Amino acid sequence: MRPRLTPLNADAPHLLAVMLLTGLAGTALRLLSDPGETLPTLLLTGLYLSLPLLAAAGLTVSQPRRGVCWGAGLGAALAAAYCNYVLMDPQYNQDANIGLGLYLLGGFVLVLGPAALLGGALGYLFGPQEQSEPATSYLPLWPWLKPLGLPVLGAVAAAGVDYARTAALTGLALADLLIGAAFLAGSALLYGLLLSLLPLLWLRGLAARTGQPRHPLAAFWGICAGLALGGVLVRAWPSMLAWPLAALLPLLGGVLGWQTARPTR
């Protein structure tokens, strides 16, 4: 049996836009309730808090059944909006932003995942039953899995950078430092793989429809390289400005990969 990945649902662009806007609504309501917040702060914080939702989006927009796709996506988006609103409240977000940090590290699994499952179940029971059309041509899966090694290497490098910085600034025992580095590497790895799932499904579907995989595959290599470099950047440069730069790196890598792909002879 040939291994394959389910292509993106036909409603994926609309659902992704709705999910992001819903998640940003929670952030906007919290920040706008404080008159001291500025528009740059709103934009940077919104981008920062969209990471768990983007990670969950890769799993929701690939559901072939339309009702499941929308139910899971809206469930994750509503949960993200609620978390963004509550966790940014000074009443709950205390003790060095521990609650917000835990949500950013694992919220896409512990919070958004169950919400997506519940929404998907409701969509399966009560939503539309139409399904996406399968890809018209078969593409080998292995060439599309090899670029995922770059986010793996990036997660290890990010953990190494964080370990070196923490060891230099604190007097923690070696065992505690290694446990923290392993936890960070695991979280960064999950983020890298989940964030790469959305472009993987889209670019592989594009290659299957056109029968020309060279440029989409090269773009996916660039996106994975950008994700790996972005993960290292945010650990090496602990600044809010690092996050928008890290978000631009996969986009830049994808464009460069597409443009530099050698034409098919």
Rank of each mutant, 00 (worst) to 15 (best):
L112G: 03
L105A: 14
L233V: 07
W144E: 10
A164H: 07
G222Y: 09
Q129T: 06
G99D: 08
L21C: 14
A167K: 13
L87V: 10
G154C: 11
L31A: 06
G205D: 05
V156P: 05
A115C: 11
A225W: 02
W144C: 12
G120Y: 03
A228F: 07
P134E: 01
S33W: 07
R30V: 01
W258V: 07
W243T: 10
I223C: 13
G107W: 12
Q259Y: 03
Y138M: 02
T210R: 05
A164F: 06
P140D: 04
P40W: 01
P134M: 02
I223D: 09
T27H: 10
Y138W: 09
L177N: 06
M1K: 09
L49M: 11
L194T: 15
F183P: 01
A12G: 10
N84F: 04
G71T: 01
A28N: 10
L256F: 11
A158Q: 07
H14Q: 11
F220D: 04
V109Y: 06
S33Q: 09
P52E: 05
Y92R: 13
N84K: 02
L148C: 14
P134V: 00
G211R: 00
P199R: 05
L104K: 14
I223M: 11
M240F: 13
A168D: 10
L153N: 12
L112V: 03
L16Y: 03
R235L: 11
R204Y: 02
D162W: 08
G113D: 06
T6D: 11
L51V: 15
G154N: 13
D34V: 02
T41K: 00
A158S: 12
A236L: 00
A168L: 06
L189R: 05
Y163C: 10
C69T: 07
P134Y: 06
